[in-house]
Simulated assay, not measured.
Amino acid sequence: MKNNKGNRGNQAGNDRAPAKVYVVGNAGANPDNVVAGTFLLNNRYAYILFDTGADRSFVSTAFCSQIDITPSTLDHYYDVELADGRIIGLNTILKGCTLNFLNHQFNINLMPVE
């Protein structure tokens, strides 16, 4: 997905880029390939949903306080469609999170979602 930083718009004619996020246990969600489990995120156990159809990586705002990274503000918004069909605008990101997946560490950026 483009981040629309260069052209400052998308096909809908606004300055928001589209993204999707799914919620575990919501019957209305139709994810592509999903794997879920408990993994270490910044040395804290987190229940993580890996979805091959998601455009970005998200984290609950409740969990953000446990990973001790100050959010950064982006210069653009992403329109994110939630599993219940609502669309919210996000412009914050937690940069430099560390995901431990099968003893391999990956640096990831996460967008906080309530």
Rank of each mutant, 00 (worst) to 15 (best):
A12V: 12
L40V: 01
D51C: 00
F58I: 05
P71C: 12
N109I: 06
N7C: 12
T92M: 12
N10T: 11
F101E: 01
N91G: 08
R86E: 07
Q66M: 10
S57A: 08
I87N: 11
V35Q: 09
Q11V: 11
S65M: 01
V21Y: 05
T98L: 07
V59G: 04
F58G: 09
S60G: 12
C64K: 12
F58A: 10
G28L: 07
T73Q: 05
V59M: 09
N42Q: 09
F58Y: 15
R16V: 00
R8E: 14
T38A: 10
N103F: 06
A27T: 09
E114L: 09
T70G: 00
Y77E: 13
Y47Q: 10
V34Y: 01
N10H: 13
N10R: 12
F39L: 04
L102G: 04
N10D: 15
P31I: 06
F63T: 06
V24P: 06
E81Q: 15
A19F: 07
I67E: 03
N100G: 04
F58L: 11
V80A: 06
T70P: 00
A12I: 08
G37H: 04
Y45W: 07
Y47P: 01
L99K: 04
I88C: 05
Q66D: 03
L74Q: 10
T61S: 14
T98R: 05
A36V: 03
V80L: 07
L40F: 07
G37K: 01
G85V: 08
E114D: 15
S65P: 00
G28D: 13
A19I: 01
N100W: 03
P112N: 10
N7V: 10
D84W: 02
N4E: 11
Y47T: 09
S72H: 11
N26M: 06
K5R: 15
Q11M: 09
N91F: 10
A83F: 01
N30F: 04
A19D: 09
V24H: 08
A83G: 02
L110N: 08
Y45L: 11
T70R: 06
F101G: 02
N7A: 04
H104Y: 08
L94N: 13
N4H: 14
N33Y: 13
H76L: 07
F106L: 10
E114C: 13
R56S: 01
Y78P: 02
A19Y: 07
V113S: 09
V59A: 01
N109W: 01
L74I: 13
F101A: 02
S72R: 11
H76P: 06
A62W: 02
